[in-house]
Design a binder for these strands. Structure first.
Lengths: 215, 215
DNA sequence: TGGTGTGAACAACTTCACAGCG
DNA sequence: CGCTGTGAAGTTGTTCACACCA
């Protein structure tokens, strides 16, 4: 039962853009905008209009020729495509500075994500309660808690040296998706979805650009 | 005096990978490894070996045929290319949960980055001192402090609604590079380097993958 | 011999340009 | 008429395969 991903020949970049579109559509719904054309949305997102139409065309025909897209309807469709018509249950590993910040991040719930459990190995932390209310579990309880609470996404905020092990333990407990904040390339079995959030790499990109700009 | 970027026809992806290589080379230096072949490094990074050689070839010939690369030498060259042979001075805007976590992040210094100033607009925060030692300035002092301290990179950790304005103020003070943690597409003048760190988008990618995997 | 450096083939993604339809 | 949806063209990035050389 090794990966599969069905018939999906859809660029990752497309999914990333859909996520960005949904953000702006969400704002438009708030503002009461009813209809939007690809040119207008493209401008907002800093993307080519044809790109938007192509992205959407992978999944169906959502627009009206000569008019544009109904904002509400399009947002609904995109959320359905992305799988955001439910609340995803996450576990957080590593309650350092970053982990604490993530646990307190209010946007998650609004966006359809929720931490249902948090973990650390530090005896000084285990058993304590975060401002957000969760009790910090010891990693030894991971397997049990993950299964009990039905965790679907693991978020890794440990130091780099502990990230690989933490990820493996999540996978072994049945978690299929990892959001990794540690600056390391995780080596995980096929069929696991991994996304890295790596600001060191981003900073290095900026440093390079600045260095080039000067020459 | 509009952008330029000189003769750089080098893929962003290449720069990102160089950053990743440097990480593993750093570890190897620690471990006392003297020589590495592209195949070996490729395995570590989960990248095609030819890709590594191509990436390096943009900048020169650093290897020895039939042997590989001297680890220390290659690391030095990559750091030079990325512009990491200096300490980059950063300003942090927005001292919420995330901002606080970033300000405390010890890896930055080790990596060649340093926060020389931090800002917020909340009167309850301005004037207070962070655990890391910095005093929180009011945004009104931005221009002055940025120039005084020679800030080169702005890091935005404000709510989405405040990010665009914060970015513009940084740019107007002479900052040329922005690391943006707010979930919004910044609209900035040409010649500004922007990198987005956007974990909402990453989560949406995971949600999509999980949804597809089930069907 | 064995691994680099690289042209050439390939693959993936983006943009153009316009037919087609509301 | 105007904007979507889309084949075709263009662009960019990746992988192959092998000549070359320490």
């Amino acid at each position: 039962m090794r990966s599969a991903m069905k018939f999906s020949k859809i660029p990752t970049a497309t999914i990333t853009r859909l996520s960005i579109y949904s953000r702006y559509l969400e704002a438009m719904v708030q503002e009461g905008v009813k209809i939007i054309a690809s040119d207008k949305l493209a401008q907002k997102c800093g993307i080519n209009p044809a790109q938007i139409r192509k992205d959407l065309a992978y999944f169906g025909e959502f627009g009206i020729r000569g008019v544009g897209y109904f904002v509400k309807e399009l947002l609904f469709e995109i959320k359905r495509i992305l799988g955001l018509n439910k609340i995803w249950k996450m576990a957080l590993i590593g309650i350092g500075n970053l982990g604490s910040a993530l646990s307190a991040h209010q946007n998650f719930i609004r966006q359809g994500y929720e931490f249902v459990a948090v973990f650390d190995v530090d005896p000084a932390k285990v058993g304590r309660r975060l401002p957000s209310g969760q009790i910090i579990h010891h990693m030894d309880e991971l397997d049990q808690v993950v299964k009990e609470k039905g965790v679907e996404i693991g978020v890794i905020a440990t130091p780099a040296a502990k990230a690989q092990m933490a990820a493996l333990r999540l996978i072994n407990s049945g978690v299929k998706a990892i959001l990794n904040f540690a600056p390391i390339q995780l080596q995980l079995p096929e069929g696991t979805a991994v996304e890295n959030v790596d600001f060191t790499v981003k900073l290095d990109n900026l440093a390079y650009n600045l260095t080039m700009a000067e020459g």
